[in-house]
Design a protein around this nucleic acid. Sequence first.
DNA 1: TTGACAATCAAACGTTCGTTTGATACAGAT
DNA 2: ATCTGTATCAAACGAACGTTTGATTGTCAA
Lengths: 215, 215
Amino acid sequence: MPVAKPTTHDATRERLLDEAEKLFAEKGYNAVSVREITKAAGSNLAAVNYHFGSKENLYLAVFRDRWRARAEKVRRPMEELARQEKVTPRQVVRTLAQAFLRGPLTAEERLRHSQLIAREMASPGKAFDLLAEGQLKPAMEQHARLLQRALPYTIAEERLKLIVLSIFSQVLHFNFARPVVSLVTGRSYDAAFIEELIEHITDFALRGLGLEETA
Amino acid sequence: MPVAKPTTHDATRERLLDEAEKLFAEKGYNAVSVREITKAAGSNLAAVNYHFGSKENLYLAVFRDRWRARAEKVRRPMEELARQEKVTPRQVVRTLAQAFLRGPLTAEERLRHSQLIAREMASPGKAFDLLAEGQLKPAMEQHARLLQRALPYTIAEERLKLIVLSIFSQVLHFNFARPVVSLVTGRSYDAAFIEELIEHITDFALRGLGLEETA
DNA sequence: TTGACAATCAAACGTTCGTTTGATACAGAT
DNA sequence: ATCTGTATCAAACGAACGTTTGATTGTCAA
């Protein structure tokens, strides 16, 4: 009888996922070859098809096993905030900006996270439904609810959604469009600049909400 | 070796540029084959290498001959605004949003324009320098100057740049991330929704500037 | 020890890729 | 009529791609 799995410790599979995520985030699905991935993982060319069935399945596995886990880590600070009794709009927006720009991830993880999502948004592939329906939509709806709860006035559902999209767009943009941001501002993405970006996004969005005036 | 002789109207070359732009915008550089392009253009497989030397040169030519020309059309309303004596901040922001969302281009052209720029920003390729240094940076600097001129108070250079980047990020995002925007809002990109988006971006950014309060 | 099974490996598969080649058609100038 | 150069064409090139194969390894249960 087929007894339970003999070796749960499947090191090759994990290394493939790690290297695949790095490369897919850096160069995009089509620009990365199976040979490149297996070489980086130090495994045989056939390993991808053995462990995942196909290159495309490996790509999907990256989102299921890696990206999604990170998305939950990114969301955690926001969920903790949601459990509090009283929440200010500034807390909500700032927590969102921090999660993506400073967050609970390493700098490298954060960059990959944003790059992968930006690629799927720019040209929806096989992973789009996984991301959009399962992650992006719920996350945005949660932010909308929390933001509404924190606001001192009631806001139209439609307008609230657009505002959340506007905030998300900035957070994503300042991550994946780094070359442009650096070129225009003349700044590199060091810790100090990232703090300034968080400040800027928070202030800009709060005024966009009609709170806190002038400067 | 094709000598760059500006001969009479070279119909094949133009058709190749047209179809190449469509396909590159839709699927990205790597996902489009030379066979696909030449078939769409109704020309021979060798036409790309004859007229442009290589697939990569064709890609660059798309930006030089097509994208850049469109960028100038997009910028025109803003330049006309800059010639006026008195300009309000609302005019500046609204003109920018309109240029990308309603603009002087057809709906199809506008989509392609945003997709191409989004792709280069997400993963800088050979065309990035062409775009960033030659187009994006000057355009953003022009907007910054015009915005400063329209504002009733002086704003720090650094902050002004970040604000312009924030506005740009929204304009681009609402164009290239259409699938996500549609999913979250439940709206399709018809004329009515686009007008609402222009209104939203304008209002949001104006409040972000500290002008016009609450809602 | 033996048998079964999951994992890894080198090698090859067929396909598609971007590019090159050599022939051909056609234009205007001499 | 001949020459000259541009443009187009079918065909083929070598390289790289994702995938498959069959042999080989190591491990554990019987």
